[in-house]
Design a protein around this nucleic acid. Structure first.
Lengths: 232, 232
DNA sequence: AAATATTGGTATGTAGGACATAATTGCAAG
DNA sequence: CTTGCAATTATGTCCTACATACCAATATTT
């Protein structure tokens, strides 16, 4: 029974649930299951894979968490369209992120804001400009840092929205706690927020009358002050 | 016993495991647990929360999947640093993504490649330029589409690497199957790959002698041909 | 005494049975 | 045709038992 093939069988480091999860994913792709299609019930899967229903449930619960499937009480379980960023959100608790990750994320933000400049000039309209102006005014009138940070984030959220890319809008919402955390760190260090080289009003002016190249320079100088705070 | 407060109690739409997961996360933040710190064992959690060990395990398995915790057989379970993008990867199977998400992701790619232009000119060196040149040559010498696609992706992966942002490098690797899928779609539609307006050689030339603004224009014209394939 | 084997305890991993819950179906009475 | 009720079905929760890996301390060998 225990011959060489058994002894030297590939060592499995992933848990059973993990393997089962992979098997189920393979099953999906093999059978070309599309959104709405039902998948076998838990007991059948357990029997087919030779594991307990417990393990199958754990695997399924992973897929469920990712939004890849959706389970209803009597209807069974069906394939669903996953929420791209909903899952991502779950690991983005600043408390769990090291300083390296934080720095990368903030740098990514700069990359994104520079990257959308072309789209901004392509898609922005008068109404957007007015709305941005109102936000900038409210920020200027803020009585404390908390309020100011709120309007600051709101300003940049609007930019993402104007760019028209759904993905980015969600991304902004998800990254909110991270950026907020960075702001908090910053506040602690030098007591009051440093004035940005280029203000929000400057940015609006450029969006109205300037070029995308001018905008990129401005947004770069607007955001970089925040980044050295992350490298001590 | 069953008075109005019970009747009109907030309806629970999340599963028990989901609630427990949240409770455990709250426990982490409340106790300010850091990486490496141990968490209570499953049975204790189950008892404390008044649920079965089964449910606790399901919640923990979620956190485990996200890399937030790490469980060893006798040592118990400890806090770990999450893998930012490792989880994200799990939902990025092109088969599960709708056309809208695909379009957004590809647009995001353009945003990113435009966004890193500043960093590229800041951080690129001669060795990078030579390496990029070799890749471009190999791409030109490719005998079939598969090979050409491989080197194309390799070229852009190098760009991300040169930018120096870890996050982006991982992002590229994760998005690989998505972009590959887009290329496949494209191949099917117009049989042979459309020539890019700006070739990789052009991009290298600009990186060597040009400005970041020229580069942005070039990369934009280089990538946009791919995007209309996604909106039918 | 130092290195190695053995043994036992501990927390996670897996198994399997039982029951609860919600949703669907079909039948029956109004 | 609608309403009400019971049966059915697959997921959700609970429970108990055992397996497995790991660690520590003790026992055995060299």
């Amino acid at each position: 029974m225990t011959d060489a093939t058994d002894i030297f069988a590939p060592i499995v480091k992933t848990s059973l649930a993990g393997q089962v999860e992979q098997k189920i994913r393979d099953y999906f792709t093999e059978h070309k299951l599309k959104i709405g299609d039902p998948i076998p019930k838990e007991v059948d899967l357990a029997e087919a894979l030779g594991v307990s229903r417990n393990v199958v449930r754990e695997a399924l619960s992973h897929l469920k968490m990712l939004g890849l499937i959706q389970a209803k009480k009597r209807r069974g379980t069906i394939i669903a369209e996953p929420d791209l960023l909903g899952t991502f959100k779950k690991v983005l608790d600043p408390l769990f992120l090291g300083p390296e990750s934080l720095k990368d994320l903030f740098e990514l933000r700069i990359i994104l804001e520079i990257g959308i400049s072309e789209l901004l000039f392509l898609r922005i309209n008068n109404k957007d400009l007015i709305s941005l102006g109102n936000i900038a005014i409210k920020e200027k009138q803020s009585l404390n840092d908390i309020e100011r940070i709120y309007w600051d984030i709101e300003f940049h959220a609007s930019l993402y929205k104007i760019s028209g890319n759904e993905f980015l809008q969600h991304f902004q919402r998800i990254l909110y706690p991270v950026f907020h955390y960075v702001y908090e760190q910053l506040k602690e260090r030098d007591q009051k927020l440093r004035p940005n080289i280029a203000s929000h009003f400057d940015l609006i002016d450029i969006l109205r009358n300037g070029t995308s190249e001018e905008y990129r320079k401005a947004i770069y100088s607007h955001l970089t002050p925040h980044i050295d705070i992350l490298q001590p």
